[in-house]
Amino acid sequence: MKRAGVVALNTFREAVRDRVLYNLLFFALLMMAASVIAGQISIGIEQTVIVTLGLSAISLMGLLISIFIGVGLVSKEMDKRTLYAVLAKPLRRWEFLLGKFGGLVLTLAVNVAAMAVGLFLALIYVKPELERGDATVLIAVYFIWLKLALVVALALLFSCFTTPLLAILFTAGIYIVGLYVQELRNMPMQMMSGGMTLFTKWLSFLLPNFENFNIMAMAAHSRQVPGTLIAQNTLYAAIYCAIVLTAAVVVFSRRNLK
């Protein structure tokens, strides 16, 4: 486990040195522009505009990092053959995978936290006195981070057995479908055949439900988030990540490195 931590810290260092955190600069500029414009054009709903825009930007930037860097976590190492010397050390393949996952999730945590600070600064600019309900924004950011961890796990799994391009497509595809899992569950089943009903039902439970992590509307209106939702989402992300990572380990442990 200690060795997985060593790999995680190195993955974090790689992300920092590859200038992944430069997106923060873009986010800062976006937030500054948004707070100035929102103050001028949206009378009375500045907070809603800033929070919605800020959380959407955090989610989008996080997704881009999770998918593109997540897919490269293993495939880049295989392509460049940096993996050879690493796996010849007393390091189990699952430790390596867990370390890579942990490193990117840590990078995302730092990234998302820094963007959350930027969002709060913009919020203070349009609304100098913060309320207790504004803390919901923090919970929304936490949920985005959980969602991103899940996306990283999926990207890692796909990159273990397919090409980087296909892994990007699969991960992005599952993310998009995962946003509509609730709609899939609410489909009028009586109009479908028995087999199709069963398939749709299973699929809706098999796919990750990314919409669970979206509380943007609650955050924009400073509504309280129930504690059970926080616990439920945390547990859901942890269990789903564990299952996906286990599958990735099973695939990667049998893979011949060309």
Binding site: E14, R81, Y84, A85, K89
Partner: peptide, 21 residues
């Protein structure tokens, strides 16, 4: 046996390492 790797050193062919380090 993963412990075997503690006592073995390995140089890959045309080695390539993390170039940011």
């Amino acid at each position: 046996d993963i412990d075997m790797h503690r006592d073995v050193g390995y140089l890959p062919e045309q080695p390539y390492f993390y170039d940011y380090l």
